[in-house]
Design a protein around this nucleic acid. Structure first.
Lengths: 111, 111
DNA sequence: ATATTCAGGACAATAATTGTCCAAATGTAA
DNA sequence: TTACATTTGGACAATTATTGTCCTGAATAT
């Protein structure tokens, strides 16, 4: 897993390795080729519905693809702050706490 | 630093410790009391402009307040995924890479 | 009982996101 | 070069999310 790559860069590499035109992949995703181009260039974000389609198309794990997508989103969200590491650490503790809390309560009040 | 608290819960505690009504704090922030109530209950998000005002009002570090706010946002964004820890780890590496890259290039292309 | 405070829904305004369409640019092969 | 396919990127519209206000009713305090 190359964590230095953005989702778009990764996607483009996958596509080019298979010599597929944007047009074809876009068609699988049922979106305009221009939109996919923007996703590959990072001007747009992909959404979760695209993940299983892309995973199957390129023969990779959907979870791995999602990992790249979500880490992109998180990174983008806080990269302009100075204390990014601290933010991530506190977020991790918070998530741990919340997941445990909701587990005990039974109700998944996470939306 | 209590990482188990959300930004809103933390804010409410600060306010109640000083026996201030929502109305007064909202006025300092120049927003409707109802909006502040929602922020305290987590139904709305605070924004960065509010941080220095709140920090001064309650005599705490703006950075500490921002830490709680941003970690909240990150946690909220990914808490429904299963592999949250992995996402955070990859995000951290990505940020490290991007910050270093932009440092070297000089241009802060982060927006 | 009256005042104040707070909760929460309905609503409007604004901003952000998502996608399409098209024209220009780029690449590719004959 | 010509012809064709692909990609880029701007303008635009539609949808969705966010933000805040206003108002009513409930709870709390005096």
């Amino acid at each position: 897993m190359n964590t230095k790559q953005s989702f778009g860069e990764y996607l483009r590499k996958l596509r080019e390795d298979q010599n597929l035109p944007i047009r074809k992949v876009a068609s699988k995703l049922d979106i305009d080729p221009s939109t996919l181009g923007k996703i590959e260039r990072g001007e747009r974000s992909a959404n979760k519905e695209m993940l299983p389609i892309l995973a199957e198309l390129f023969g990779i794990e959907e979870k791995a693809l999602g990992l790249i997508l979500f880490s992109d989103k998180v990174a983008y969200q806080i990269i302009e702050e100075e204390n990014t590491n601290e933010i991530l650490k506190v977020a991790e503790e918070k998530i741990k706490y919340l997941k445990n809390k909701n587990l005990k309560q039974g109700s998944l009040d996470l939306k």
